[in-house]
């Protein structure tokens, strides 16, 4: 009983904390972020498991966490607002070579992030060669180049 509550609470806590941390936190994983994720996973593991290292407790936790994930996916499919709040929405941050600095600031991103994605994904050299840059729901940047004339 307690195990299930611990699992559900941890699931909800991580969902809320990572959601309010913003898209940038999810997508731009640096080496240090990776270390941070490992520390968070260790902390939450202790929070959920406590001193009960039994097979039964482990099985219950796995079932609870996967079950919560399945329920959330049903809710996202059924209710638009749940999907909007949990997954977020894509956002256009550059249109026809012109950056929307307000939106980038809101996402805690800058010109460098767009240029880096443009170079990496499309081999683009300059901002004016980009038609659209979109920050997707998972925080990744999609770059659509202008048609070459």
């Amino acid at each position: 009983m307690v195990t299930i509550f611990r699992g559900l609470f941890t699931y909800a806590l991580l969902l809320v904390v990572f959601r309010i941390a913003g898209k940038r936190t999810l997508a731009q994983t640096t080496n240090f972020d990776l270390v941070l994720l490992l520390i968070i996973s260790e902390t939450t593991q202790q929070m959920m498991v406590d001193n009960d290292h039994s097979f039964t407790n482990g099985t219950l936790l796995v079932v609870t966490l996967v079950g919560a994930s399945i329920v959330l996916s049903f809710l996202k499919q059924r209710y638009k607002s749940v999907e909007r709040w949990v997954e977020g929405l894509p956002l256009i941050v550059l249109e026809n070579g012109v950056l929307d600095k307000g939106r980038l600031q809101g996402l805690r991103m800058d010109e460098q992030d767009i240029l880096e994605a443009a170079r990496r994904l499309q081999g683009i050299e300059r901002l004016e060669q980009i038609k659209y840059a979109v920050v997707e729901r998972n925080g990744e940047i999609t770059v659509i180049p202008r048609a070459s004339t």
Binding site: I20, A21, R84, W85, P90, I92, Y132, V134
Partner: peptide
Amino acid sequence: RIGDLDISQDLDHQHRMWRVEHVGW
């Protein structure tokens, strides 16, 4: 449809989300 893009962008929701983020911080 925004420009040539089919996209589910919603600026009102995005601003609400940012406000919620700030409250969360």
